[in-house]
């Protein structure tokens, strides 16, 4: 009976692991739902502010703004959104790999890293990158103040010429199973790209047959109060932090999605393992019984023949 007891203990151990992974799966599912709602709620603002800016750019073609002008700094700043904890499959690996590719072959002193989440910080610190900002334990916080802070901080560094480019690295949430690591350039801001984005958005909206008056309004002239430059100066910083906020929410949703999927797989693996172990346990038990019967039969035979 020694073998069976061993197997029984293993079954119990796998069962308790399974309980934990199942609980984690459910927690991640609940958090995912909240993160998705938040991401949904943040979308109208991000779209509106982009289209406002696009309209200003369209009407005052020669308008200039320091956040849209290149500066001379060779330093590339990457803002990497990762998680604080593991157990979420390949989530961190993917986004960090993408980030590492962005700064591959660049001298260390020309790269500045802002790490959101422990995993990104650890990775880049181990490789001696210059970490100019870190935001940890953001998991359950709303995140908007942090997004504003990051936005203001990096805009300031950009404007005084300490950094020449700002990129955001985050995982775009596609669905629970899939997220896509993305690299988006934030600064200097590309006016043409904003306009293209807005056009795409308008087209997508039309396809959804949610036409409001966006099409005909193209020719209407806007009035800016006060001058367009002033309005733009107030709008652009908001676009910057709104984009950080979007990245943050997408990253969160992706993290929870990954964790949920990973934990689901783990739970299923545990189930399979329990099944196999149970089978082995039954076999061992059966073998032990057969063994015992054999022994009894042998003994009694030996006795009766003697």
């Amino acid at each position: 009976m020694r073998g069976t007891r061993e197997i029984k203990r293993r079954i119990r151990s796998v069962q308790s692991t399974q309980k934990i992974t199942r609980a984690m799966e459910m927690v991640a599912a609940a958090k995912l739902r909240r993160a998705e709602e938040k991401a949904q709620a943040a979308r109208p603002y991000a779209q509106s502010i982009k289209s406002s800016i696009a309209r200003i750019l369209q009407e005052s073609k020669d308008i200039k703004h320091p956040l849209m002008e290149k500066n001379d700094s060779p330093v590339k700043c990457i803002v990497v959104f990762s998680s604080d904890r593991g157990l979420c499959g390949s989530y961190n690996t993917n986004v960090i790999r993408k980030a590492a590719q962005e700064v591959e072959n660049m001298p260390l002193d020309q790269v500045a890293v802002v790490a959101v989440g422990r995993k990104a910080r650890e990775y880049f610190r181990r490789r001696d990158y210059n970490i100019i900002g870190e935001y940890l334990d953001m998991e359950d916080r709303p995140g908007l103040p942090e997004a504003q802070e990051i936005g203001a901080y990096l805009s300031r560094l950009y404007l005084d010429g300490s950094i020449g480019e700002v990129w955001v690295l985050y995982s775009e949430f596609v669905n629970v199973m899939v997220n896509r690591p993305r690299a988006v350039q934030l600064l200097p801001m590309d006016g043409e790209k904003i306009q293209r984005d807005v056009e795409e958005m308008a087209e997508a909206e039309e396809e959804m047959e949610e036409k409001d008056e966006r099409v005909q309004e193209q020719e209407i002239l806007y009035r800016f109060e006060p001058e367009p430059e002033f309005v733009l100066d107030a709008l652009l910083p908001r676009l910057v932090y709104s984009q950080f906020y979007t990245a943050l929410l997408e990253a969160k949703a992706s993290e929870f999605g990954s964790r949920m999927t990973a934990m689901k797989t783990a739970t299923e693996n545990a189930k399979e393992m329990i099944w196999k172990l149970t089978l082995a346990y039954n076999k061992a038990r059966q073998a032990a019984i057969t063994q015992e019967i054999l022994e009894i039969v042998n003994t009694s035979e030996a006795l009766s023949s003697g």
Binding site: S52, R55, E217, I220, Y222, R223, F224, E225, P226, V231
Partner: peptide
């Protein structure tokens, strides 16, 4: 209340942007 003063806006107002 915009930065330049109070605004009352009705239907078919002229397109504009203001802080």
């Amino acid at each position: 209340r915009g930065v330049e003063g109070e605004l009352g806006i009705l239907y078919d107002h002229m397109p504009m942007v203001t802080p």
